[in-house]
Amino acid sequence: MKTLSRLYIALILIFLYAPLAVMVIFSFNASNSTSLFAGFSLRWYAELFESEATLSALKNTFILAVLSSVIATVLGTVAAVGILGYKRKWTKSAVMSATNIPMMNPDIVTGVSMMLLFVFIGKFLSLKTSLGFTTVLIAHITFNLPYVILSVMPKLRQMDFHLPEAAADLGCTPFKAFFKVVLPNISSGIVTGFIMAFTLSLDDFVISYFTTGPDFQTLPILIYTMTKKRVTPDMYALSSLIFLSVLVLLILFNVSQSKSNKRSHKN
C-alpha cells in the first residue's frame, strides 16, 4: 500500500512537471524549434537580454505588480479595519458580497466588464483610446483588493479589541493606537495579502489582456502575442529563468522560516 501510494504521488508529480521539463530542455536548444532538439546552446539566453520588447515588458510587469499590490494592500487593510467596525449587519454583508464578486467571477468577465466601463468613459470624453497603463493598474488593484481584505480580516477578528482601547486609555490618539497596537497584531495577514496580490498581478494575463491598450505590454501579454505566431525558445529561456528565481526565493523563504521555527522552539 505504501509503495502504491508513493508511486501514485510520483506519477502526479511527473504529470505536473513534464511540461516544465520540456520548457527547460528546449530553452537550451541550438535550433529555433520548440519541437526538435538540435543540440545544446545558450544562444536563447543571450538573445533574451538583447530583446528590447522582452526587457520592457518585464519592467512593465514589475512596475505594475509593485504599484498595484502596494496600493491594494494599503486600501484593503484600511478597508478591513473599517468594515469590521460596521454596526449594521446588512451594510457589512453588502460590502463583503461586493468584495467577493471579483473572486467568484471568471477572469474573462471581470476583464470584459472593466473594459466596457473604460471604453464607455473613453467614448464619453471622446478620447481616441482610453485603454493603457492607468486602466490596467486600476484593474489589477481591483482584483487584488479582495485577497488583501480576506487575508487581513481573520487576523483582525482574532485580535483582542480591548487592546486599542487600553492604548487610548493610556493616552494614545486613535491614529497612534492603530500604528502601535493594531498594525503589529495583523502584520502577518497584511504580508500574506501583499504577497498574494503581488504574485497574482505578476501572473495575470486575462484581465490585463482586456484592459490594456497597444502602448502598454506586460510579459504575459507579450507571451500571448508570441504564441499567436510561433514561439521561439527565447520565451522558454525567459520562463526557465523566472521559474529558477521563484524556486530560489521559495527555498530561501522556507529555510529562513524553519530556522526561525527552531529558534522559537529553543526559547
Binding site: L75, V78, A79, A80, I83, G85, K87, A98, M159, V182
Partner: peptide
C-alpha cells in the same frame, strides 16, 4: 469594542462601487 471608525472604509466602498458594481 471597536477598533476603528467605520468611516475609514469609504475609499474602498467608493472604489468597489465604481470598479466592481458599475462595470
Amino acid at each position: 469594542a471597536s477598533i476603528g471608525n467605520p468611516f475609514i472604509s469609504s475609499p474602498y466602498v467608493v472604489w468597489s462601487a465604481i470598479f466592481i458594481i458599475v462595470p
